[in-house]
């Protein structure tokens, strides 16, 4: 028995949602790049964005157990919306972020009605198909997106009219990190909410849910829409911090990469996606010299190893180790 002290049931649940000292340490560590690695702030910004993207996938895949092979569609919609908005309306970043989030959420909501009807292989295929469709649309709508030439003419104004996006990525990282932290707080609350509990119920036992009166499809629609909103924010962040948008933002590669990161870190854990994204991005940066196909050799080896030996990702493995250690 883990907890011999008599806790009220409410006290027990409350204690489980309290901040752990390690979490505070983690967030303090995210400030380190400003002080220690000023040359890597652009990379840090990319990591923050990717981490947020992994967190968004975690909500549907890690918590609700809905596998998606096309999550980049919403990232791309966010990226292009922000780009188009900055070119044709104005370059103020927050409004661009909101528009991107809203549009991605709208598409997410629309597709959620399809997604929630499927499970298993058909679901994998539908998400893959929708993702590829989105990519094809972005590719062929050359007049709007610039197609394979990339989008031309993103212009992002300084934040609050004061902090311009500098060459070193200082503003970019501060902006992305702030977004990551705020959305993380929301996601953390969501996971600890009754809704989060219902999502875990869906993941654990889809068949039982209706027998306790739950409408799993409605839950999945909601979770999918929320995940799409967050993914849209990520896309917009990338557009605004790099002043560019390209087909890469909506590619299958991005959908696959984020899946790899999440699983590497540990799906169904709030920090899984964040840790996975950091490791993946740093490793890719370190090995940027080698050709991409060899990079994917190691990703492949890693995937096989994680699936065969570390079924709950790095965080799962660590918590198991810690559990064993503390029991001694």
């Amino acid at each position: 028995m883990a907890n011999p002290t008599p806790l009220t049931p409410q006290g027990y649940l409350l204690a489980r949602t309290r901040w752990h000292p390690l979490e505070i340490l983690f967030w303090l560590a995210t400030l380190l790049p400003f002080l220690v690695f000023p040359n890597y702030l652009s990379l840090a910004s990319q990591i923050a964005i990717t981490a947020l993207f992994a967190l968004s996938l975690d909500i549907i895949l890690g918590y609700a157990g809905v596998v998606s092979l096309g999550h980049a569609a919403f990232f791309g919609i966010g990226a292009y919306s922000a780009a188009i908005f900055s070119k044709h309306v104005w370059g103020e970043p927050f409004s661009g972020l909101l528009v991107a989030a809203a549009l991605a959420g709208l598409f997410g909501y629309a597709t959620s009605f399809i997604i929630s009807r499927f499970r298993h292989l058909p679901l994998i295929m539908i998400t893959l198909g929708l993702g590829l469709l989105a990519h094809e649309v972005a590719n062929s709508a050359h007049w709007l997106t610039g197609g394979s030439d990339g989008f031309q003419g993103v212009s992002t104004e300084p934040i609050f009219g004061l902090f311009r996006f500098d060459l070193y990525g200082k503003t970019a990282y501060a902006y992305s990190l702030a977004a990551l932290f705020i959305v993380f707080l929301c996601a953390r609350r969501l996971i600890n909410s009754p809704f989060g509990l219902a999502l875990r119920g869906i993941r654990e036992n889809w068949n039982r849910m209706p027998a306790i009166g739950a409408d799993s499809r409605a839950h999945i629609r909601k979770a999918y829409t929320i995940a799409a909103v967050i993914a849209g924010i990520c896309g917009a962040l990338l557009t605004q911090t790099t002043n560019s948008a390209s087909l890469e933002s909506i590619s299958f590669q991005r959908s696959a990469d984020v899946l790899v990161m999440l699983v590497l870190g540990g799906a169904g854990r709030l920090y899984g996606g964040l840790i996975g994204a950091a490791i993946f991005m740093i490793a890719r940066d370190q090995f940027s010299g080698i050709a991409p196909q060899y990079w994917y050799f190691w990703i492949g080896i890693l995937l096989v190893t994680v699936v065969m030996l570390l079924p709950n990702g790095i965080l799962g493995g660590l918590s198991k180790l810690l559990g064993r250690w503390s029991r001694k």
Binding site: L13, T17, R189, L190, S193, P194, L197, I212, G213, A214
Partner: peptide, 23 residues
């Protein structure tokens, strides 16, 4: 506790509240 709380929340119609702590 979590499982039965989930079922109770479903019955009470509060299971779609994603903004409040379950506790």
């Amino acid at each position: 506790l979590e499982a039965v709380t989930l079922a109770v929340c479903e019955r009470r119609g509060i299971s779609s509240r994603f903004w409040q702590n379950v506790a």
